[in-house]
Computed example of a mutant assay.
Amino acid sequence: MAAKAVSVTLGEMAERAERHLASGRFSSMSEVVRAGLRALDREEAALDALMRAKVQEALEDGRPSVPLAEAFARIRTATTAGE
Rank of each mutant, 00 (worst) to 15 (best):
Met1Leu: 06
Met1Phe: 07
Met1Glu: 07
Met1His: 11
Met1Pro: 01
Ala2Asn: 14
Ala2Val: 07
Ala2Met: 08
Ala2Thr: 09
Ala3Asn: 13
Lys4Gly: 03
Ala5Tyr: 07
Ala5Glu: 15
Ala5Arg: 12
Ala5Met: 10
Ser7Thr: 14
Ser7His: 14
Ser7Glu: 15
Val8His: 07
Val8Phe: 09
Val8Gln: 05
Thr9Asn: 15
Leu10Trp: 04
Glu12Cys: 04
Met13Asp: 14
Ala14Tyr: 10
Ala14Asp: 13
Glu15Ala: 15
Arg16Glu: 10
Arg16Gln: 13
Arg16Ser: 11
Arg19Cys: 04
Arg19Leu: 12
His20Ala: 09
Leu21Tyr: 10
Ala22Gly: 03
Ser23Asn: 02
Arg25Asp: 09
Arg25Ser: 10
Phe26Arg: 00
Phe26His: 11
Ser27His: 09
Ser27Arg: 13
Ser27Thr: 12
Ser28Val: 06
Met29Trp: 03
Met29Thr: 01
Met29Glu: 03
Ser30Arg: 05
Ser30His: 05
Glu31Gly: 12
Val32Pro: 01
Val32Met: 01
Val32Thr: 02
Val32Asp: 01
Val33Tyr: 06
Val33Ser: 02
Arg34Phe: 04
Arg34Gln: 10
Gly36Gln: 04
Arg38Trp: 03
Arg38Asp: 09
Ala39Trp: 06
Ala39Ile: 05
Ala39Thr: 04
Ala39Glu: 13
Asp41Glu: 13
Asp41Ala: 10
Arg42Thr: 07
Arg42Glu: 14
Ala46Cys: 04
Ala46His: 08
Ala46Val: 06
Ala46Asp: 12
Ala46Leu: 12
Leu47Lys: 07
Leu47Cys: 01
Leu47Glu: 06
Asp48Ser: 12
Asp48Val: 02
Ala49Leu: 04
Leu50Met: 11
Leu50Trp: 09
Leu50Asn: 05
Met51Pro: 00
Met51Trp: 02
Met51Gly: 01
Met51Asp: 05
Arg52Glu: 08
Arg52Gly: 03
Arg52Ser: 06
Ala53Lys: 13
Ala53Glu: 15
Lys54Glu: 14
Lys54Gln: 13
Val55Asn: 04
Val55Met: 11
Val55Cys: 01
Gln56Phe: 05
Gln56Tyr: 07
Glu57Lys: 12
Ala58Tyr: 04
Leu59Ile: 10
Leu59Ser: 08
Glu60Ala: 15
Glu60Cys: 11
Asp61Ser: 10
Asp61Thr: 05
Gly62Ala: 15
Arg63Thr: 06
Arg63Pro: 00
Arg63His: 07
Arg63Gly: 09
Pro64Val: 05
Pro64Glu: 11
Ser65Met: 10
Ser65Cys: 03
Ser65Glu: 09
Pro67Ser: 07
Leu68Met: 10
Ala69Arg: 11
Ala69Tyr: 04
Ala69Cys: 04
Ala69Pro: 00
Ala71Cys: 09
Phe72Lys: 10
Ala73Pro: 00
Ala73Val: 00
Ala73Asn: 05
Ala73His: 05
Ala73Leu: 06
Ile75Met: 09
Ile75Cys: 04
Thr77Phe: 08
Thr77Asn: 12
Ala78Arg: 15
Ala78Leu: 14
Thr79Glu: 07
Thr79Trp: 11
Thr80Gln: 15
Thr80Val: 14
Thr80Trp: 10
Thr80Pro: 01
Ala81Val: 02
Ala81Ser: 15
Gly82Met: 14
Glu83Phe: 13
